[in-house]
Computed example of a mutant assay.
Amino acid sequence: MLRSILLAATLSACVLCLTSWSIETDRSTEYKNGLFEIREEARRFVAQENAKGPQQWDVLEPNAKVLVPRCAVPLRAQWTPKRLGRSEPSVMVICATAVANDVMSHWDVPVPVRQKPKSN
């Protein structure tokens, strides 16, 4: 009986924690790069691209499962090369040098985009 109560309480706490999480609150820390900053770099890149021509894009959310070490240099972004085989267009946010860690020295995160509907 006590085990059932503990399980129910733990599951309730997990649900509350997950419902309060969002990309808006997923900011960079000393150890990890936040998805908020990754999305913002993709937004900056897309705003520059939108200013160049007739095609207009909206940035979607990066995959919430992504966890990468904090970047030691400014993030940069580019269109994800087609040779990487992604089926939909995306922007690749790139960290050329991650803060020293045992996992990876650099990384890139694809952020999906979609074409804005044409306005009449």
Rank of each mutant, 00 (worst) to 15 (best):
L2M: 01
S4W: 14
S4Y: 06
S4G: 09
I5V: 15
A8V: 10
A8T: 03
A8R: 12
A9V: 15
A9W: 15
L11W: 01
L11K: 00
A13C: 12
A13D: 15
A13H: 03
C14F: 06
V15T: 08
L16C: 10
C17R: 07
C17W: 06
C17T: 12
C17Y: 11
L18R: 13
T19V: 12
W21C: 14
E24L: 06
R27F: 08
S28V: 12
T29I: 09
Y31H: 02
K32D: 07
N33C: 12
G34P: 03
L35H: 13
E37C: 09
I38K: 04
I38D: 04
I38W: 14
R39E: 14
E41C: 04
E41A: 12
A42L: 06
R43M: 06
A47F: 11
Q48R: 15
Q48F: 14
N50D: 14
A51L: 11
K52L: 08
P54H: 07
Q55S: 08
Q56G: 08
Q56I: 03
D58Y: 14
P62M: 01
A64P: 12
K65H: 09
V66S: 08
P69R: 12
P69Y: 03
P69I: 07
P69V: 02
R70Y: 09
R70S: 15
A72S: 07
A72W: 05
V73L: 15
V73G: 07
V73E: 15
P74K: 10
P74Y: 04
L75Y: 07
R76Y: 08
R76D: 10
Q78S: 14
Q78Y: 04
R83V: 13
L84P: 00
G85I: 11
R86M: 09
R86D: 01
S87C: 03
E88G: 02
P89D: 05
S90K: 00
M92I: 01
V93T: 01
V93N: 01
V93P: 01
C95P: 01
A98C: 07
A100H: 02
N101I: 15
N101A: 09
N101M: 11
M104A: 15
M104L: 08
M104Q: 11
S105M: 13
D108P: 02
D108C: 11
V111N: 02
V111M: 04
P112K: 02
V113K: 00
V113M: 00
Q115P: 00
K116G: 07
P117S: 13
N120H: 00
N120I: 05
